[in-house]
Design a protein around this nucleic acid. Sequence first.
DNA 1: TTGAAAGCGATACCAT
DNA 2: ATGGTATCGCTTTCAA
Lengths: 326, 326
Amino acid sequence: MATIRDVAKAAGVSVATVSRVLNDTGYVHQDTRKRVAKAIKELNYSPNEVARSLYKRESRLIGLLLPDITNPFFPELARGVEDEVHQQGFRVILGNSDENEQKELDYIHTFSKNNIVGIISATNNPIQKNYGDLHIPVVFLDRVSDKHLSVYADGVQGGCLAATEMIARGSRKIAIIQGPPSLRPAQDRFQGAMQVLQSENVDVQVVQTNSFAFADAQKWANELFHLYPETDGVIASNDIVATAVLHEALRRGKKIPDDLQIIGFDDIPQSKLLFPPLSTIRQPAYDMGKEAANLLIKLIKKEQVDERNIQLPVTFIERETTRKVD
Amino acid sequence: MATIRDVAKAAGVSVATVSRVLNDTGYVHQDTRKRVAKAIKELNYSPNEVARSLYKRESRLIGLLLPDITNPFFPELARGVEDEVHQQGFRVILGNSDENEQKELDYIHTFSKNNIVGIISATNNPIQKNYGDLHIPVVFLDRVSDKHLSVYADGVQGGCLAATEMIARGSRKIAIIQGPPSLRPAQDRFQGAMQVLQSENVDVQVVQTNSFAFADAQKWANELFHLYPETDGVIASNDIVATAVLHEALRRGKKIPDDLQIIGFDDIPQSKLLFPPLSTIRQPAYDMGKEAANLLIKLIKKEQVDERNIQLPVTFIERETTRKVD
DNA sequence: TTGAAAGCGATACCAT
DNA sequence: ATGGTATCGCTTTCAA
């Protein structure tokens, strides 16, 4: 690997001058600039980011912390973040915390030891203290935070929407699956739906859960139909859970959506490929990722940011686990 | 952030000594060691990886390059890689090449500029030249390579298995979906299946495709049933394509598996949650990731590696898109 | 417009 | 057993 010294020597100038043309700072004569450019090309030189980072005490790396890359919602977020970050000349280093506080800390540590310039975190653990004494900007994604900026979808609104649409389509014995208590977005959805449900003349049953994992979801789905066989509508805490419910309902020979309506949350790519395709409340995951990246980069560049929280709208995606309404 | 100097001062020793206790190299008196340890704790000191990396010309970062994080197969791989890498004290920095050569190059560049110690690549592009002049170990994952080590599942065997099982279960007019031509694993599966299909007395139709994207898959599924309405068995190039086929078949009112059997490839987590659950050829994605990580780390540590290619076995997962056999 | 030299925060060689 | 110091590759004053 060629270094800045090699380039300087080849071009017959000092390293300072090479650095100047590299960073386009200070004065450099046209001819000198050309000679340097030529040397760079000939030596196929590319500056060592590590050395640069050591001196400047900052890299061009952004840390992205996800709770579970295996849940299809998060790759969608990640793609949004990545595309935007990449386009603005930064790179992302991704960590998967596995919803485990120790791993999360490990990653924050790794990030910080590698001079990362900012962090986007979508982790579940309510350990925002861990982000406090970092001296770099942090944006929470799909999470709300009082202390830090955050980008998220309107969960309350989403919950309302789900309940409203479900009632409008005729369900009267509705089971609602309450996601993990520690997860604010899940609780928002729940609250939103409950608001509507309780103000209407319908039966409502709550199924309490504490994770979004496939396997667990299947168990709860089973439990749901066992406990409340009369249920004619399920509002699930996300699409994975909704999928498990759908699956279990079909297994039990229920007609969807005639016997039972189901509404999910997230609109992960797979949802439209289910049979029947899942009606759901869509979160604009990709856009959320882009927004978060954008916001973070503004912070990094110390640009003015006018809003501390960016809340994106959710929409009802009508597919075939809900009945038609005229 | 405290530096090694601060620690040295606080402990009343030189930086050399601090470095010694940090790295556990050379002699250092017990008492001194204790004083240093105390200072480290008090100052909450943690060594700057960037400075360390600059001097040693290597980091503790491993680059993982994925073609499309949005395809659920890859997060599975990634988790395997990550878990193993993490456990062995390295960290992974993840790049998503989006099946785009330029992005792939960008990431390789980023990796190299950040003193990454090794790369695991699962990208599609046949541009192994790009990895040639890197001076660090590279392991290909879910890809086969002549020049570099690689870890992959036995595609030919998988194809054979799919064809054999399908015939054993009574399909006689079989359509096989040939994945992207540039993708060796997809072609292996195809070849494997064709071998069996052609040696048996069955009709076989080939549907040529060039991507694994959801949207495209849906189009081909449609085309398949339009062109070959008699088809009573489909061997798909992966589970995403199989899902699209299943979806389209149900939409057209076919009974699964009575009218039509479907076998996928990969066994992504969603496959078991489809309705009916998808029969498929399972690749042990998580384990493949772990193997690749293990192999790479051996290379990094310059340990002896005995096999240049690690081929993992595939298995037929019988679910409900295939008929029972007695 | 250019160059010399002082750092950035570690490691490791050479003394002592 | 410990310390001084050159070094990694770059950026940025300061002087010329």
